[in-house]
Design a protein around this nucleic acid. Structure first.
Lengths: 120, 120
DNA sequence: ATCCTATACATAGAGGTACTAGGTATTGAA
DNA sequence: TTCAATACCTAGTACCTCTATGTATAGGAT
């Protein structure tokens, strides 16, 4: 990443799968939903999302179909597949593992039980 | 990523900074520590870690110095810098935001309050 | 009428990352 | 002497991230 957004991007797949796991949405709506879920902290743009959506579709995690909004605009609706749900479950497991490791790394602030450097 | 390890890798920077935030370690020990913290679920290899360590050093987040283990093996000791602590703090904040968004996305399993598709 | 904003899709391309594979060398145990 | 563990490293492929940019429509404001 050139800036500090990599964490966001890294979790993008998991977040998209999680959101679509709750119900179908189209791309633009996913961006809005991410904004909602993060109280505006996560501000994705289309250039970030659409390539991801296309990749997820290519991987078989999502299925797309064209529709029309009541306003008459075309919309590409995405829904999660069984395979996508499997991937989501796997990612949730992975997330838990990493979250736990991070929590420990952050909490411990190990009181230097060993006064000498751990590498001695 | 070619396989499913991207989440691990994506959190690698945060995890390394978090671990070194607790005290200096050398590369190989960081790999072991990651294994400990995850109960063996996260199994990093050197090819993953060393380039990351070098990058983090280049970014000014870590400082390296050569030492010697009691067994007589050379070791490159890494310690976190002030800048690294700043980056860690930022990442902790980012992590909290994403974790919260994910929790919501996973919990809600939105009861389809709106019976019609959200995009109608 | 015209402009602007929001909606809604999309791709190109620079630059960066992730991970495998492979390499070097030492220590100590079987 | 052979093997595993310790301990460092780089090359290079494949892939991802994100900015910039483009297209087009609807609806409100001026």
């Amino acid at each position: 990443m050139h800036n500090g957004k990599c964490l966001v991007a890294a979790s993008a797949t998991t977040l998209v799968l999680g959101i679509l796991g709750d119900g179908d949405l189209h791309g633009y709506a996913i961006i809005k939903r991410v904004g909602e879920l993060s109280d505006g902290d996560l501000r994705w743009n289309e250039g970030m999302l659409y390539p991801l959506l296309h990749r997820l579709e290519r991987l078989g995690y999502l299925q797309a179909s064209w529709g029309l909004s009541k306003a008459g605009r075309r919309r590409k609706q995405y829904s999660i597949t069984e395979e996508g749900r499997g991937a989501l479950a796997q990612r949730q497991k992975q997330w838990a593992i990493v979250a736990d490791a991070l929590r420990q790394a952050w909490e411990t602030s190990r009181p230097t039980t060993e006064t000498k450097p751990g590498w001695a």
